[in-house]
Each structure stands twice: as C-alpha cells, then as structure tokens.
Design a protein around this nucleic acid. Sequence first.
DNA 1: TCTTAATCGAGACGGTACGTCTAGTCTTCTG
DNA 2: CAGAAGACTAGACGTACCGTCTCGATTAAGA
Lengths: 200, 200, 200, 200
Amino acid sequence: MKAHKAPNSARRNEQSRQAILTATRELIAEVGYAKVTIEAIASRAGVGKQTIYRWWPSKGFVVLESFVALIETEEGAVELPDTGDIEADLKLVMRETMEEFATPAFEAPIRALNTEIINDPALAEAYNEKLAAPTDEVMRARLRSARHAGQLSPDADLDLMAEMLYGPLYQRWLLRSGPLTPEFADGLVEAVLRAFGPRA
Amino acid sequence: MKAHKAPNSARRNEQSRQAILTATRELIAEVGYAKVTIEAIASRAGVGKQTIYRWWPSKGFVVLESFVALIETEEGAVELPDTGDIEADLKLVMRETMEEFATPAFEAPIRALNTEIINDPALAEAYNEKLAAPTDEVMRARLRSARHAGQLSPDADLDLMAEMLYGPLYQRWLLRSGPLTPEFADGLVEAVLRAFGPRA
Amino acid sequence: MKAHKAPNSARRNEQSRQAILTATRELIAEVGYAKVTIEAIASRAGVGKQTIYRWWPSKGFVVLESFVALIETEEGAVELPDTGDIEADLKLVMRETMEEFATPAFEAPIRALNTEIINDPALAEAYNEKLAAPTDEVMRARLRSARHAGQLSPDADLDLMAEMLYGPLYQRWLLRSGPLTPEFADGLVEAVLRAFGPRA
Amino acid sequence: MKAHKAPNSARRNEQSRQAILTATRELIAEVGYAKVTIEAIASRAGVGKQTIYRWWPSKGFVVLESFVALIETEEGAVELPDTGDIEADLKLVMRETMEEFATPAFEAPIRALNTEIINDPALAEAYNEKLAAPTDEVMRARLRSARHAGQLSPDADLDLMAEMLYGPLYQRWLLRSGPLTPEFADGLVEAVLRAFGPRA
DNA sequence: TCTTAATCGAGACGGTACGTCTAGTCTTCTG
DNA sequence: CAGAAGACTAGACGTACCGTCTCGATTAAGA
C-alpha cells in the first residue's frame, strides 16, 4: 500500500472540496454507500477524479470527512440532558441513541463507515478521533457531573462506564444480534449503575 | 436482489465444495478478505466460477461456511473453565478471548465476516445462528452454573450479562477504539460482577 | 511491451467481432482516426472493452483488420486493366490511384493506419502482408504480362519497377510534398518505362 | 481547431526556449516519440507547461523546431560529393542515406516527425519548407551539375528524378515494406539513370 | 445398460469501476 | 509582470472482477 501524501494544500480549491463532500453525502443517501463510486462523486460534484485522488487516500476518508464537515456545522449544542437524575437521563439518551440507529438516513452511512473502518486502521484512527471521541466526551461529561453530585461511586472509572453503556448497544446494532428495545436500554443502564453507583 | 435458490444438492460434488472452502480460507489468510475475489477462489480451487455462484448467494456466505466447516470439525471441546470462582474464570476467559482477537490468523477472517455482516442482514442472521450463538451459549452455561452456586444474584439477567462482557471488548477490537489490555478485561469483569453479584 | 497472446479462438463470438469492425469503420469516418478510442468502439459495438483487448493488441490492428475485412468482401475483381498498351494502362491506374488518395473516405483511414505503422513494426508487418502485398501483386501481374508481350525488357526487375511507380506517388501524398497532378503521374510512368522498356 | 496565435515575442525568454528544444530532443532519444509528453518536456526543461503552449501550437512543432535548430547550427557543409561520375556519386549518397535511416539516433526523431506530419498539413508544410526542401535542393544541385556535364539528358526533369530516387527508398524505410540493402540502392540509381540518361 | 439431464471446468461475454495518465486551461506566488 | 509551479476539469487508458452465458465432458439416476 502506497502511503497517501497530500500535496501542499495552500493551492487547494475550497469550492471543489465542498462540492465533493456534498455530492458524497447526497449519493450515500440516494443509492447507499456500497454503490457510491469515486466516479459518481466526481461526476456529481463536477470535478475531475484526480482531484479526489489528490486529496483523499480512499473513499472511506471522503465519507468520513463529509460527515465530520456536517457535524462541525451544527456544533455547540452537543450536550447531554442533565436533570439531576442520572438514571433517567441515561435511559433517555440510550433510547434516543437507539432510535437514531434505527433511522435509515443515519444508519446507512454509519454502517458504511464501519465497514471500511474494520479493514482500515488508518481510517479507524481518524474515525475515533473525529467522530467517536467527541461523542464519548459528551457522555463522560455527564457522568462526571453525576459523580460530582454523588450519584456515582467517587472512584468510578468513567471511561469504562461509557464503554459498558455503548458497547452492548453498538454490538446489537452493528451485528443485528438482538432487537433494540427500550427494555434492553433500561436494563443496561440499571446494570451499569449498579456497578458504578455510590454503594459499590 | 434475487433470492438465491440452491438447486437439488443430490448431484453436488463434495470434492469441489471442500476445495472451494479450503481455497477461501487460504486466500483470506494470504491476501486479506478485501482482496479475495470469486475468480481467485475458483481458480485456486480448480473450479468453475459457476459452481460457486450455483451454491452460494454471495462471497460472505462462502466465507461464513468455510469457517463453520472449520469449527464443526473441532466441535465438542467447547466449554468454559469452571473452577468454582466465577471472577477468576471470567477474567481468564476474557484475557484468552482478547489474545485470540490479537492473533492475525484469527483476526483476519473474523474481521472479514464482520465486514459483510454489517451490510447484509441475511448473512448476519446466519452468522449469529451458526457462529455467535454457540459461543454465547457456552458463556451463559458458565454463568448459569455461577448463579446456581450463589455467586450471582438469583434474578441476574444472564443474556444481558453476557452482552455486557462481550460488547465493550468487541467494540474496542472491531473499531480499534482502545487497546486490549488485561487491565481492561479485569476492570470489565469486576464491574459486571458488581452489577450482577449476590448483593445486587 | 507485452506480447499479445490471442486466446483460443474456438469460443470467439463472431457477431461481436463483426460489430467491432463495423463500429471501427464508422467511427473513423465520423470523427477521424485520431479521435477514435477503444472505449467508443466498444460502446458503439455494444461490446465490453475487454473483448477488444482480448483479441487485438492495439487500436492499429483493429483498424487494419476492419479494412482487410472490407476488402476481402469485394475480392475477386481486383485486377488491373490490360489493353495491351502498358503505358496507357499504367497511366490510367496511377491516375485512379491518385484520385483514390484524394477521396476523404479513403484518405482518412489510410493516413491513420500509416501513422500507427511508422512506430509499430508488428503492425507494419501485418499491414504489408494483408493490404500492401495484394495490391503490389496485382501490379506485378500486369507488369509480367507486359514483359511477356515484349513491352518491357526481358530482365526488368518488376519488384523494383513497382516500387518506383508507387514510391514517389506515395511520398507526395503522405508527406504532402507536392501536388498529385495527372502530369506527375504521366511523367512518372514515362520515366519508369524508359528505365525498363525493351530498348534498355 | 483554434488557430495558434504566437504572442509578442519581444518578451520571450530565450533560455527557456533552448531548454525546451533540448529537453525535447533528449526525451525523444530516450523514450521514443510516442511516449514524449508535454508535461515531461516541461518538467525536464524546468519550465511551466504554459510556456510551451504559449509558443508552440502542438507537440509536432516543438519537435520540428528542435531539429531545425539542431541542423541550423551545423549548416554550410551540406553538399553532395561531385567526382564527375554521377552514377558513382548517387550510389554513394543513396547508401549513406540508407545508413542514416538505420541509425537509431536519426531514425527515432524522423519517424516521430513523420507521424505528426501525416495528420497535420500545417506541420507538413513547415517540414517540407524547413527540412525537406534544403535536402532536395542539394540533390538537385548535383543533378544539375551532371546534366551540365552531359551525363543526363538535356531535358531531364530533375525534380521528378529526385523524387524517383528518394521515393522508393523512403517508402521502404517508413513502412518497412522491404530491406534497405546496397543492391536495392544500386538498382534504383541504375534504373533512374536509364530513364534520364543522355540517350533517353 | 442406456439414456438423459444436471453438474462440472473452462472461459468468453457485456459491463462497471478502478486508479493512473495526459491534455490543455486557469490560478497563485515568486524573482 | 512574465514565468515556474502546479491544481483544475475532462476523459481515455488498460486492468480487474462482476455475474451471466455458452461450451463440451463427466457423471449419477432412473428407465
């Protein structure tokens, strides 16, 4: 595998970049990730194929950047609810997350990205840094608040806790190993809180 | 998508079938799943392409069957250790699972399968039934034994418990979102046992 | 340069072959040789690109074969006039040849072929064998008849004679180094006959 | 086809011009004309592509100018031998010409030019004027001398004679329609002299 | 035992997309 | 402010595979 070497970006055409990211998002929504081709993106964006190959090492990175760009525009409002009741808040968040996962418009591209991530460590790194890390940080912030409020054990490992909340959910969704029901979300939250609650 | 209709298997050539499954496994190990093509499998197996298309609906199913075939041959010995100490046993199992995940010979094909599963519900179902279910059942058997021994709460949800053990581990591995260290395994087991232990 | 290895032609699809040769001729007539692409030929012929690459080593050979095919269909009538007067016959033939050279429908593809021949010895060989040799043989047959009739010296080198008739004409045409006038043709014939006539 | 309009040459950078012509000659010698690209010339010459497009209408003209430039530097010594024996002199010249044609360093670029000339009338004109005409004139000068010496018929058409000497030779070479042997050269000269000799 | 019909290896077929290459134009920065 | 540097749109290149489709040549079943 040849390492991708991005050229000097000073001369980069920002209009083309935006057109490519937009076309990518549109195409994924229209025909599904697996059928999105570099040629189609270039054609839709009114751009030469070389312009894509010049700046991105693979389709996965184009897709990733197209989502990062989308998220960055709506940034700021990303924060979990904090009613003071950690259990209620977590259950709500988990249910909302599950619903998001069930939305085709959301599901398709994320599944797509995960497909690529599995076999591309470089893309995985970029994904974790650009998309997963911010999401996790939001969760950890809420947990930190709860711990401060005495609703969690003072020595609760919040990183592990976040992973225990998201991991089982994610697995069921990605591998379709089980249904995403509210009961599942509630049971998961309750179990995690038993593990990290103040009594533990 | 046209439904795959397997023809009458009475006339099926078992030698060809075995050659295909073996070639598939070899090729995945040699060049990685993404670069394995139907043509390469056919060529390696000394088989016409049509013979593959006749009996399997997609590459994913060939891969899946090649692993199922492998596992079925070594069946029987699959059982978790039971020293009477559930915490020690689980920690051991989790560490061993992690090591397995780190073995290239094991990692490559499982990643391969997961790639296909993500975008193919039918394959996901077959995967969960043929490969995941047996593994989970082994885990649940050990947990049932522990509950019977009073090391777990009488009303512990063993299905959920198994998912909480495997989910975070699986997520870290598949998405490379964190390192697979013994400390992580231990922390995970301890937290899950706090959630489902006799006091809870 | 990789040697072109035509596969076993037993399975060859004759319909596709004809469609390709026809499409090639049409495209050359429509847009000119330089702008004819393999992709366009394939598309026009309703054929996969690989089918062209499988059977021909380069665009030049496709073009060559398309003309050979054309000529072979009208075969049989190819013979020079023989009125008994070699000078008159040659002058007529040379003038007709010049007119042919001036016909766009004829000129374009032959120029095209010559372009390729210059830099491709293999194509040159095929061209000389398939297109040039038959034409030359027809000329030599007429000269042989004239020699037999005593209108040429008994030891006249007919091969050289043919080359001296066609060479200057060809050069003027290909390199546009001079006009193709009847006077030029007549002068050329007269000079060649002085060189190879019975008195010489 | 857009007419090429050379800009005001007052500001033209002579160093760049020379670098381009030199790079062109070197590249033709190294990789062959067909594989020479404008980009490669610009890169080798340390020049922007635009500088080439600004001053030359096509690759052919760059090649042509690169040879004209070369020839102009060694000009003056161009004259045919004149021993008084036209047959011996012509045979010598023809043999030398053939040898030149067989020299790769000479052959490659001339073939290259001819490739372009075939399909580009404007270039053909420039070629005939700049390269062919001087060569022909040298030949005609020698023939004029022979006619004056009574070795040729007083009314011999020297232009036609020159074409009859070069034409067959050129055709054999360009189309590889036959071997370039001394016997061929001698036979050609003898035949032409029979046609244009004093007796005729 | 002899059809006879499905399966087999083989590989040509019409296609799609790949990633690279070059053309010719346009833009930016530097000497 | 001309020129080097090089990014841009466009599109052909030749390759790799896809999944379908013949081709005989087995081969196993039932007549």
